[in-house]
Design a protein around this nucleic acid. Structure first.
Lengths: 223, 223
DNA sequence: CGACGGAATTGACTTTCGTCAAGGCGCGGG
DNA sequence: CCCGCGCCTTGACGAAAGTCAATTCCGTCG
């Protein structure tokens, strides 16, 4: 994938004019990390941030107790570690490629210079931030007020795609990771999935779940 | 309080030069809401955002079940609803004055125009966002991985002020609200406080807690 | 001063969820 | 083809924390 095509795929850049794109192109490179390789480790000096072109990337921290905490799983179009460029010098988490993939690597210093020259670009970044912030607020609300059934139901509905009237929620990663994303553990997730399946509200498929009874799922959400 | 003095108190504006301050002053007004009055309600058209000069303000949502969920409690220097100006037309939560107070009201449209004219200001806002974002990530980690004891200990230490070697954590609001902030309920908070008091790691005072044994508290954090 | 009302506390009970341990399933390598 | 290794599932159990209900504390107002 060349740089121009890559910029088209990232919402931060996809409406820039040609002059702006040339400027952005100056401070980005396309990388193709292999599955299992790290974009960066927690504590590394933060000279760059990333935008996902292909594949899944896991942003995580290791707790003092040695457990993994998944901050988020980023997919095509998502921006990773954009926080790092503004107010810190090191990454607050680590990021690993869960699959082979490709990313746009954006040099922080050059990019900040670009922002100063292109205020519209700043507004776009602000926009991105505010969406991310909002999603954290609802995740927080979710975790503190709802049980695992509600969190799972919510996740399935939120990530579902509608094709020909059939809802399908892709889960392109392991159940262990889904459990961590939901703030629970594989055992509890497994039991909750079983309950949903036995009531016929979901059906398991390769890499995801069919949601034949969205109405019932919504009921779980607001319980 | 006049506008010039008010701008000095808000970190978004406190390093602006005179010309910039005059521009900002154009789109802000100082308001003095009384205890119990709302800055805005969830769903209102979002024409402005706010910065706290004095008092406490509670940003909250009402869940479908009718419970209150506190998104955060904002105090002097904090910025409220800055997300609203970029990508949405309505406030995603409500905000009420918990005490008499004063705020800077900033008109969104004029401010966005200002951002386009003053790229440095955009960078400051970005900075603010990234800090806020980071605090949400740790709150999330907290909620999903730690028990109430750890969350309370963490909260106390994080918000403590050191005066003459004595740590004091101010809690200028009710225990009910503290409980909600910690993602629990008053009963559980009360029991946890009792446990901490009985072990001598905290002492209750008017509007807060003394932390005579910070070391013990830190042990609770990482348990 | 005494009564009321909201906040906080306490106790008994229940539910949810995590822990521990065992076993099944699928897949790749020898 | 069989073995081993992860991943996932299942069951039994216990701990944490929420619910419900009763009581105490405390500030306010008549």
């Amino acid at each position: 994938m060349d740089t121009a095509e890559a910029l088209d795929r990232i919402f931060l850049f996809d409406t820039l004019d040609n002059a702006q794109r040339r400027m952005v192109a100056e401070c980005v490179t396309v990388c193709t990390p292999e599955k299992g390789s790290h974009l960066y480790f927690e504590g590394d000096a933060a000279h760059a941030f990333y935008a996902v072109l292909e594949g899944q990337f896991k942003v995580y921290r290791v707790t003092p107790g040695g457990d993994e905490f998944i901050v988020h799983i980023q997919q095509e179009g998502d921006v990773i570690a954009e926080a790092a460029m503004f107010d810190v010098k090191t990454y607050p988490a680590s990021c690993i490629a869960m699959t082979d993939g490709s990313v746009l690597r954006i040099d922080s210093r050059s990019f900040v210079a670009l922002l100063l020259a292109e205020p519209l670009l700043s507004l776009r970044i602000l926009h991105a931030y505010s969406r991310r912030l909002r999603s954290f607020v609802s995740a927080l609300e979710d975790l503190s007020r709802r049980d695992v059934k509600a969190r799972l139901a919510n996740y399935l509905l939120r990530n579902a795609e509608d094709s020909a009237g059939i809802l399908f929620c892709p889960v392109p990663f392991s159940k262990r990771e889904l459990a961590t994303l939901l703030g629970t553990i594989p055992e509890t997730l497994s039991r909750t999935l079983r309950e949903f399946k036995s009531h016929g509200v979901i059906e398991e498929r390769r890499n995801g779940f069919l949601l034949p009874d969205a109405h019932a799922l919504r009921a779980y959400c607001s319980e």
